[in-house]
Design a protein around this nucleic acid. Structure first.
Lengths: 202, 202
DNA sequence: CAGCTTTGTCGACCATCGGTCAACAAGAGC
DNA sequence: GCTCTTGTTGACCGATGGTCGACAAAGCTG
């Protein structure tokens, strides 16, 4: 009698709830360990309802990531008023701060992302764009030479590897890591034969 | 009638066959896309038989990798008669040659590795050991400082990123990539404040 | 308050996955 | 030809991601 079997929510409200709880769950657990069934139970709804709102687990995951991605974009957006080196420094600093704030989420993302084809491509896309941004700063006109491109591409991997190591050990300061990363980027470009026309750090 | 429903093979022969075909399949397809069922069908046996010979998919995959891992160990084993820099150079060269010969397998490995927990740990193990080898060469006694450790750890990621980029574009020579990698390692250690006591390259 | 309609919601279902098991049958030895 | 070892298999399990017809909660109409 009386007690309804379930509470009917407004579509937008339900969607908002699912995205919010999903973000919490996906950032605190690796993708592969979260089944749609479990998520549904955790939120208090049926799995079918989850699929009513999102076409697939991957799509759900991606939408869940949007807020985070937006923040990343905003916080690392370079200030065009600064010099190239200052832009890079401040973007890098913002990125590292974000990683530090969301250490678990970052680790889960890097780890589980590569396993899920779609998510991996999402990450590769970010890396590609970042690489293009850096290379475009170095070679405003024309295409970047292969070695420079390889160096920047490798450097982005370096960054993720170093960040994971940083998160794991937490025994160096963010500023130190930032300077290390900057130094490595300069060193890489130098080793690639591409002399960055930036003033030396110091 | 006569025709037997299946052919009975000697255990060793069957095992050899499974390892051989498994190596082919696992190196030409990503781990996640190969189901035990499909492998079994492909080899012409039942899935149950696969599990009779190998305790799990992961174990099967790892055994399949053994030949490759052995080759990696052999070919990158540093010659103690050479100087540290020469050791590193020749190991790196051997590694890059191996990657070049098995480009598809390498890409599949790196890609699927991050997604499959067990395989990821296998790769991380290799990275850890390689990092330890390098750091031990630099700091024979005592522990390496955090920044040096972070730099080496990041450099190993750099290597994979650069290799993937290299494989994808194939527009630089192996020697160039090797020199780039060496230069980046030196540059990273320098940026980390750890002065490698190696003679400068060139 | 009754009845109708809309649509948010769910239980039951599907194919496939990695993995297990009792039971069949191929082929060597007598 | 018979037996016995053991390589081999079909059928099964619990989980997964994903689908679908049908129920029921709530807004609207009388």
């Amino acid at each position: 009698m009386g007690a309804p079997a379930y509470r009917r929510l407004d579509v937008d409200e339900r969607r908002r709830q699912l995205l919010e709880r999903g973000a919490e769950l996906f950032t605190s657990h690796p993708y592969e360990e979260l089944s749609m069934n479990r998520i549904a139970r955790e939120v208090g709804i049926s799995k079918a309802l989850l699929y009513h709102y999102f076409p697939s687990k991957q799509a759900y995951f991606e939408e869940t990531l949007n807020a985070w991605a937006e923040q990343l974009r905003e916080r690392t957006e370079p200030d065009p008023g600064l010099s190239p080196l200052e832009q890079l420094t401040s973007s890098l600093d913002a990125f590292l701060a974000l990683v530090e704030e969301n250490a678990v989420a970052y680790r889960n993302l890097i780890r589980s992302a590569a396993g899920v084809a779609e998510i991996r491509e999402l990450i590769e896309e970010v890396r590609r764009k970042t690489a293009a941004r850096i290379l475009d700063g170095l070679y405003p006109e024309g295409e970047a030479p292969p070695k420079a491109r390889t160096a920047v591409s490798g450097w982005l991997w370096f960054m993720d590897g170093a960040c994971l190591n940083w998160i794991e050990h937490r025994d160096i300061e963010r500023g130190e890591l930032r300077d290390l990363l900057l130094g490595v980027l300069m060193g890489s470009l130098l080793a690639a034969g591409a002399a960055p026309d930036l003033p030396p750090a110091g």
